[in-house]
């Protein structure tokens, strides 16, 4: 049958509008990454945590049959000397290592955003704008702290209850200054924590994200400083022009969805020319840092760029 022999040409013409898209490719990679993560977590628990837990319980019961079960001290912030890092360091200042504030969440879960096992993440609220402490870099040079935004008026362990019109923090002492950082207005601030100048990135908190008519680019004022861009599990765009172009696609097309956050399957890391990084969480075609934004155009452009 002649027509059967021509089936490939006929079928490809008849189904020419049906093709596998970059968006589908990205969805596949996200789905696979989620499955691998679940598999790894289940494996870790089955092979390591469960037997250890059982052994610990048995030992405790054997040696301390009457010991109460609620005497485990809560985790605390500790300093772990890890060597020297370079980031935003124009005066040759030494960076002393990494402050670890969590002992039960893997570093990869929040990327470079500092987290804690319980309570609110380390943050500063500056008159309605909220900033989350970055775990990397572990300290920045004092010379990068430019303009003072004011002093912390309230130190509190319950920042969600603070007045939004003041400067408050759960990790910076009352009376300490909060500064802009290297000209990245409304995107980064820095302040002293445990004696070191630490960097904080603009995020959503407690239903607060953008203020007034702010758009995404107002909360991520990094254009012109981008060196590279990567999405975990997908790849890296290491050409700065290409990365800048992708950022422009993001800021031109992102649509604001909410002031909340998302359960992420991946992390977008934007490395800047002065060595620091900004971060957004990604789930499907939504991105979150200060607010949740929808931008399928960016996702497909990024997938095409790493191809």
């Amino acid at each position: 049958m002649k027509q059967l022999d021509q089936l490939p040409e006929i079928a490809n013409r008849s189904l020419g509008g049906l093709h596998a898209s970059p968006e589908m490719r990205y969805a596949i990679q996200m789905k696979a990454a989620r499955q691998q993560k679940r598999k790894t977590q289940a494996m870790v628990f089955t092979k390591i945590a469960a037997p250890v837990l059982c052994a610990a319980v048995l030992l405790a019961l054997f040696f301390f049959p009457s010991a109460p079960l609620n005497t485990v001290a809560p985790p605390s912030i500790t300093s772990l000397p890890l060597g020297q890092l370079q980031a935003g360091d124009t005066n040759g200042a030494t960076l002393l290592g990494e402050v670890s504030v969590s002992n039960s969440r893997a570093a990869g879960d929040s990327g470079i955003w500092s987290s804690v096992t319980s309570g609110t993440f380390p943050l500063i609220g500056v008159k309605g704008r909220y900033y989350r402490m970055l775990s990397s870099p572990s300290a920045v040079s004092a010379s990068s702290a430019l303009q003072s935004l004011g002093i912390v008026e309230e130190y509190t362990t319950e920042p969600s209850l603070s007045d939004t019109g003041i400067i408050s923090s759960n990790c910076v002492s009352a009376g300490d200054e909060v500064y802009t950082f290297n000209g990245y207005n409304n995107t980064f601030v820095c302040a002293k924590v445990n004696g070191e100048y630490r960097l904080f990135q603009r995020v959503s908190f407690n239903g607060h994200a953008t203020l007034g008519k702010e758009t995404l680019i107002d909360t991520l004022s990094i254009s012109g400083h981008i060196q590279s861009m990567s999405i975990s599990g997908i790849g890296t765009v290491s050409d700065s022009s290409a990365a800048e172009n992708l950022f422009r696609i993001l800021t031109d097309n992102a649509t604001y969805e909410s002031s909340g956050s998302i359960r992420s399957s991946s992390i977008l890391t934007i490395t800047l020319s002065d060595g620091i990084s900004a971060q957004m969480l990604i789930s499907e075609d939504r991105l979150a840092a200060c607010g949740v934004w929808s931008c399928p155009e960016f996702i497909s452009a990024f997938s095409a760029a790493v191809n």
Binding site: Q3, L4, L7, I10, A11, R13, S14, G16, G17
Partner: peptide, 18 residues
């Protein structure tokens, strides 16, 4: 059938085999 935009109207005779 899901033809590409430039094929609209050109594939009627092929619909039979599909």
């Amino acid at each position: 059938l899901i033809p590409a935009p430039d094929q609209f109207g050109k594939i009627d005779e092929e619909e039979q085999i599909m």
